[in-house]
Write a protein that binds this DNA or RNA. Structure first.
Lengths: 197, 197
DNA sequence: CGCGACGTTGATTTGCCTCAACGATTGTGG
DNA sequence: CCACAATCGTTGAGGCAAATCAACGTCGCG
């Protein structure tokens, strides 16, 4: 029993936090996944390629960002262990942005494509609930980020960011975080040094 | 035939832009609505009161805003003729914000409460589609606004705002628009005067 | 070793906020 | 109908946070 607990994959543990599923449903889900690895600085997604997968991070760290018309990077989200990463909002409409998903560390991922996702939903509807909850949380997170940028100064937002991604300030380069917060790398550097005192 | 066209209510015209419905479905919908008026500067929604309705603007203009912890107003949306106004995001979760909906002009509205909305969805499922489309558009609009605030300066965002709400800069006071854009009324005033040249 | 990537620090500029004053308009009560 | 207050937009002055531009140090890697 204990051994079986240890054998659970991270994604199975994650799913069971949100929904109840039978062993056969989990097995179906596992059979629809493919595993892949991405080396640091390589891209999982680039513009022009239709995004057809959702990815679950088993190990590693990635960032999803887009380039605006002026060429500035804006990091939409980071993805570390036990995060799903995809262009969830693209489920609704494509907003004509150039989306990139780039590995920051060597990463191993699980992928499920859209057809398999449909199969999963048909045969195991509990997963509809799982993904709906994740999507809803993504929207709420986005909402919070909007409010946060309206209400708080950069230092407060940096501390909030560190709290929401545990220990990430030691895994990810400074300038990635600056892109996420929407400030220059120099400004964030000054904020960090003011916090050390 | 022409006369019947003229007799269509604004909300009926709006619905038929998005979905196909029968006359009896429209009649059911109309029977579930109640009409109300709100005088300028009066509130349709205030914190503490559970939001149980969706409102369609027949005539007039309102704004939905919240107060942050520092007491600053942030206008989420304006609602003019043919707009629905409600806390759509509250369908997902309540984010513990203090929401106000205030009439800027004397306004006449149609209201539908949650129970009637459920009845409508059960008896006329096409309306599920109608409201899903509206909700999706609201999310996309929010997304665009986030990107806009990251990419553009205040002048560009003011012009974008004027383009998205036709002629609104002549209907709504300066400081309401400033609250929407997240700048001070003085700054917006200076931007406006720079545009006149 | 030499190069590139990254973080830090300084100097300067810029956009916006805040505070303050003032004019124009509107609403209200005597 | 007038006097007064309240509301709103505009303009100026001062200050601050962050952007920009630039220089420099450090680290890791081919």
């Amino acid at each position: 029993m204990v051994i079986i607990e240890f054998m659970k994959s991270p994604v199975e543990t994650h799913i069971k936090k949100y929904i109840s599923v039978t062993e056969s449903e989990i097995n179906l889900f596992q059979s629809l996944l493919t595993e892949l690895t991405v080396k640091a600085k390589k891209y999982l997604v680039k513009p022009g390629i239709q995004l057809k997968h959702c990815y679950f991070v088993n190990k590693g760290c990635l960032k999803a960002y887009y380039l605006d018309k002026k060429g500035n990077k804006h990091v939409i989200q980071f993805a570390i262990e036990n995060w799903w990463v995809s262009d969830f909002e693209a489920f609704y409409h494509n907003l004509d942005i150039k989306l990139y998903i780039e590995a920051i560390e060597d990463s191993t991922l699980l992928a499920i494509n859209q057809e398999n996702l449909e199969i999963l939903f048909t045969k195991a509807p509990a997963f509809e609930r799982y993904f709906r909850i994740l999507l809803t949380n993504a929207f709420i997170g986005q909402r919070k980020r909007v409010f946060s940028s309206l209400e708080k100064n950069t230092k407060e937002r940096y501390l909030e960011f560190c709290a929401s991604y545990p220990n990430i300030e030691n895994r990810v380069q400074n300038y990635h975080i600056a892109n996420y917060l929407g400030v220059s790398a120099e400004s964030l550097s000054r904020i960090r040094s003011s916090l050390k005192c």
